[in-house]
Amino acid sequence: MPERQRADARRNYARILAVAEAEVAAHGPGASLEQIARTVGVGSATVRRHFPTRRALLEAVSRKRIEALCVRAHHLTGAGDSRQALLDWLNDVVAYCVSARGLAAALAYDGAESEPIHENSCSAALEEAAGPLLRRAARDGAVAADVTITDLITLIVGIALGTEHHPDPAARAAGLFRLAVAGVSPRR
């Protein structure tokens, strides 16, 4: 939201965002924009002016969580064991995606929005923040050199979306992530 907006537009944005957070928490990424507008008491055009796409809405709702994950990545960058630091951060991403409805959808690379104006800012922020973690782990031989943060985020999004209707999505997602890290081959 531009800081140069009128005071009433900033208030509308804050009210819409607060209601959107509640709607996404209750109904997931498919939360109704029309319901958000009705709850706030504005027209749907006002909601769409602030959030022209569903992704823009989900990214705004997820912004604080994304910022926390970025801070966590920066904190872990200097940790002793580069593999463990990367896995700790990825576990945090899995936990956030499972606990925060809409976050996995905000991180998904759907390919439908290829113009730079529609860049997936949530994923871009995580890629930038976690890049040093991954590069360090790759340099230490703890991760294959061709693995990217995009690959890892895509894996996590798939796990989160695939477990969202499980009776215990957090446990199921954590288990699938451990399986992905360990691989399917038996330990020797």
Rank of each mutant, 00 (worst) to 15 (best):
V47D: 04
S32T: 07
P52V: 09
E128R: 15
A73K: 02
A7P: 01
L87K: 00
H50Y: 11
E34S: 15
S44T: 15
E164W: 10
S32D: 06
L126H: 02
D140C: 04
F177L: 05
R48K: 12
D8V: 09
A18Y: 00
I159D: 03
K64T: 12
E164D: 14
L17Y: 02
G80I: 06
I117L: 15
R49S: 13
S44A: 15
T148L: 04
H75I: 12
V157W: 00
S123D: 11
I149P: 01
H27W: 13
A7H: 01
L76A: 09
V47R: 11
E59N: 10
A173E: 04
T148K: 00
D110F: 01
G111Y: 01
T154H: 02
E127P: 00
A85Q: 03
N91L: 05
A56D: 11
L179V: 07
A73C: 06
A129D: 03
F177D: 00
R48E: 11
E164P: 09
V181R: 07
D146M: 03
A170L: 15
E119P: 07
A142H: 03
P169Y: 08
T154E: 12
V184N: 12
R54V: 12
R49I: 06
G111P: 09
R83S: 10
G41M: 01
S121H: 15
A56F: 04
G43Q: 12
A129P: 06
E115C: 11
K64R: 15
A14P: 01
V61D: 01
G102F: 06
R38F: 05
T39M: 01
Q35H: 14
Y96D: 15
Q84Y: 04
L161R: 12
R6I: 05
R83G: 11
R187E: 08
E115W: 14
V24D: 09
A37K: 02
A85E: 01
V98C: 04
R10Q: 11
E119T: 14
S32P: 03
A45D: 13
L176R: 11
D168N: 12
V61E: 04
